[in-house]
Design a protein around this nucleic acid. Sequence first.
DNA 1: AACGCGTGGCT
DNA 2: TAGCCAAGCGT
Length: 351
Amino acid sequence: MTGDANLRDDGTGGAIAAALLDWYDRHARDLPWRAPPGTPAMDPYRVWLSEVMLQQTTVAAVRGYFERFTARWPTVQALAAADEAEVMAAWAGLGYYARARNLIACARAVAAAGGFPTTREGLAVLPGVGPYTSAAIAAIAFDRPETVVDGNVERVVARLFAVQTPLPGAKRELTALAATLTPTHRPGDFAQAMMDLGATICTPRSPACGICPLIHACAARAAGIAAELPRRAPKTARPRREGVAWVALSPEAVLLERRPQRGLLGGTLAFPSSGWDGSDHPPPLAADWDERGEVRHVFTHFELRLRVLTAPLAGNPARGEIVPRDGFDPGALTGLMRKVWALAAPEGGDA
DNA sequence: AACGCGTGGCT
DNA sequence: TAGCCAAGCGT
């Protein structure tokens, strides 16, 4: 139960791993995709699915999606056989939709190969599986001593070693330092412990150093600069874009379209729109459009103000697809398009 | 090597 | 309110 077994005998690294694993045994968060501390290997499908969902996404946001996905598609074979539009609809609202497209491609490649690769190098070839995710699956699902470096680990390591180099340039340096800490025993628990520590104690703004299991090893704490690390290069301002969304509807149907596979909101279901994403379209329908208000939405690299117009759905639209109202689920829309629907819908948002 | 890519919670 | 940040990847 304690972290005293098979420690590396190279001094600091082993002692830090031991202290962290001991803390993890007592304080590991209870998460739907996680086995109890000490469990040697976890189902690679669940590890992969959760890790892809967690890319740049909070635990709170992922929980429900993970439960729904695993209930509906319990195995990678089931997911590989799923209809693409159904997977996109199930992913809708979670963001970064290239992940959903890569998820399908990855599931099909894995199912065709008869299972997941068991090494970091083999995993890193899969679509949507990069340096972080390949190391995480190798460590957590296959008990390999790989070093997992996400935003939490970068912060914890920058503080432990008082690294002053600003991110993202410090990435290589921090990865090398993190590797000196990785134990050969329980590498998956160690990786998850580092991320739990970063998420709950070694937090960005005001770290709870008073209850940190690594306080005696932390150079930044000793220097009184823990909250200032990691340093980051200044960010560029976020520009504002403007556009229009057209919602054509009748009592029986709504006009929707599938966005191009690549690019912004690629492959998702949307109302026809223009002027904000590089496109320049006329309205999909010649009509007397009614102004319903403005939606505000913040993307990673720009802020959007989208005017929402409605009109009766009649005649032959120049683009889009006429979808029956009883076959239209607003839950299958992205966050942005849900806001558009909330303004346009006759009864405050439900289909 | 930068940049494009969503969304929501917290301060 | 406006900014910051989150279990990153692909190009």
